[in-house]
Simulated assay, not measured.
Amino acid sequence: MNAQRGIALVELLVAALIAALVLGSLTAVLTGLRRSDSVLSERALLQRDARLALERIAAMVEGSTRLMVPLEVTAGARDVLAVALPPGLDRNGDGYADADNDKNGIVDDDLPADETNDGGAGIIGIDDDGDGLADNGIAFTDNDENGTLGSAPVAPKKGADWIDAVVFYRVGSQLLERLPNIAPFNGNDYTVRPIADNVTAFSVTRVATGNRRLREVTVQLTLTGPGGETGSWSRRLRVGAR
């Protein structure tokens, strides 16, 4: 009787040890699966955010008729992108393009000497020429901030219309869009909003197409999630493609 009880106890201990080993293995597998699922989820979220941001940028670039930044003379990548507000955009549905500031049915037909009508050289608050300084042209009529006035209209009319700039740039970990308000009173009447978070890099490169009528850029966006997952996405966009 005593021998039988001893054997049963040993068997119980062995079974408990085996169960502990199995449970430990299962715990390790489940932990790995959770970690893998977390990585995949973060990657999917980053991809979604990058796709939405690039699609927003594409809508503005491909709907526009004018690439403002990077300048034509810019070599290499920039950290800012600016285009003129697309002439087909009518956000309030009044029958006039948002970029038609004087409501005469023609967009950007009567520009002032300060083409963006914002009181700054180039686009106010933006480093147009990539020299590390914003608004450092020789005057507010230095429309590309390059130190000359050659791009300003020789004889502006009433100057009742102006180029409404849409600007994309990164501040910290956010990619921002600067968009003119509906019916702006001048070029300083705009709203800035984030279109992507977790951004670690934003670069824009002007593409040499060999055709002066074509304006193309390559936009690259890099996002890094809280868990350390990183991804880069890029698109080549042509001004006026839509």
Rank of each mutant, 00 (worst) to 15 (best):
Q174N: 09
A15P: 04
V171H: 10
A97I: 01
F202N: 00
D100I: 08
S64K: 04
T209E: 00
V199K: 00
R212I: 13
A165E: 06
R235P: 01
A28G: 10
S173D: 14
A155C: 07
Y169Q: 10
I182D: 15
I18K: 05
R212Q: 13
G150Q: 11
D164M: 02
K157R: 15
A20C: 10
G210E: 04
D94C: 08
G120W: 02
E42N: 04
R91H: 09
V69N: 00
V61I: 02
N2H: 12
A75E: 15
R56L: 12
V166Q: 01
D128R: 02
A19V: 10
P156K: 04
Q174H: 08
S41Y: 12
G150A: 15
R178A: 07
I138P: 02
G125K: 02
G172L: 04
G187H: 05
R43T: 11
V39E: 11
E216T: 09
M60Y: 14
E229T: 13
I126D: 00
A121W: 01
V107P: 01
D109H: 10
I123R: 02
R56M: 08
V217D: 00
S151C: 05
E229H: 03
M68S: 08
A152T: 10
L26E: 00
Y96E: 06
N146F: 03
A201C: 05
F202T: 00
A152G: 06
E55Y: 12
T116A: 14
R212M: 08
S38D: 15
L33F: 12
K158C: 06
A134H: 04
D49N: 13
T65L: 12
D197K: 10
L111I: 03
V239F: 04
E229Y: 01
P87C: 05
